[in-house]
Design a protein around this nucleic acid. Structure first.
Lengths: 131, 131, 131, 131
DNA sequence: GTGGTCTAGACCACC
DNA sequence: GTGGTCTAGACCACG
């Protein structure tokens, strides 16, 4: 598995890992029941400590997106597409709320918020994987 | 000055302070040239360490929103309304980009992103100060 | 023999096997002297490794519930009903003690412990095989 | 804070720690808002690694029993007594269910389950802190 | 081979 | 001082 990691970010490494794996699961790029790379293998591949990958997987496990099977490794939890979409929507909504709230507090009104939202949609629509 | 601060949050205290002061400046609630509470007074009012307020003011100073006058304290930088709006727009845009990027990576398409964006606009429009 | 096994559980597979076989022996569902499925057959039936079944049988052997006869496989040890009951009581008691101890440490008093105990008895009395 | 830890148990150290701290919180022995020993201090006191204590606190934090305050340490979350009791009841109930289920599967009937339950209550009622 | 736990030691941001 | 993150290396149970 290929991940884009950087240590010049505020975001902890384990969070970068879990975020990117989560995106692939929710987007359906990883099939239900598909096995994830083992902790050790992924750690080696992306050049981080075993524990860092472990924390990332732990987080996804707690979210219910992946499951550890004894002695076999981690596997993508079976979920309906609508369940995946629902999770993605909730995450997006939760992330959006404070952004909109702060922009409003800084004096922007709804038409402005909309206009800029659309320009961001357009700017980024054609780009490759943004993670 | 009244600020809503909490120490059970991921956001550092100094950042909570600078964010709320910044919002008032950009929203025009603090007049150009108006003096800000002294570091010591604000620290006392909001019950945080002097150094925490200092750090918040430093951040705003670096952004150019406030200016220190030797021996007299900090003052709101004179800025045109369009300049303020431009700053707010840029901040909003920069905050929005990764949120939209991640939601797209998780499989949401533009109509979904729009729909949820509007529902967030509606949900939060009538609320009080969201900071 | 039909067993309910899952590898997404904290309980090791071999322990799930030995637990379910043990229950059938103590409940009298397996006759004294009855032969158990061979290690290989059971492993095939329930889709686990031979070594996993082996380990389960070893545990039961050590407990004296089953006995290996050279070249013939494993057989249920002959035991009186009262002996079986006594073993079941002891296991239950040993499992109960820490549960009660922890609940007490968390502030529950005896009437509460009793009330919840009875509600659990009622809740689960009509259920099917709980293993 | 004094904790009873043993490394000859199946239970991981961090779980022993969180379990004992949890019991004190739910039993009301630690007041709302009271500060817990710092991770480093407790680690030193009970002679385990800093990380082991950190995991224990992390678990309690996720359960909502304690909260980290930036730069100040961990504090007991304010909770009503009924909330505490409710949490203790749920934990007890969840722990009880599989114990009763297994005993039933091993052939014990309700009068037997009750009788032994009461004998366990009596046996352990006068004992000191069982953790 | 797999994940789970624990260790010692380090650096960072925050207060 | 505090907690948060990361590292390298170890041992264990499980399959």
């Amino acid at each position: 598995m290929i991940l884009n990691l950087t240590d010049v970010s505020d975001e902890p490494l384990h969070s970068q890992i879990s975020r990117q794996v989560r995106a692939r699961i929710l987007a359906g790029e990883l099939e239900d029941g598909e096995s994830l790379p083992s902790i050790r293998k992924l750690a080696k591949d992306v050049r981080v400590s075993v524990i860092t990958v472990q924390r990332a997987y732990e987080d996804l496990d707690r979210e219910g997106l992946i499951q550890a099977r004894r002695g076999k490794g981690f596997f993508v939890t079976a979920m309906s597409d609508s369940r995946k979409e629902s999770l993605a929507r909730r995450r997006y909504r939760d992330a959006l709320r404070p952004v909109v709230g702060e922009a409003r507090a800084e004096g922007l009104d709804d038409p402005q918020l909309e206009e800029i939202f659309h320009s961001v949609l357009d700017d980024t629509s054609a780009s490759g994987d943004p993670l």
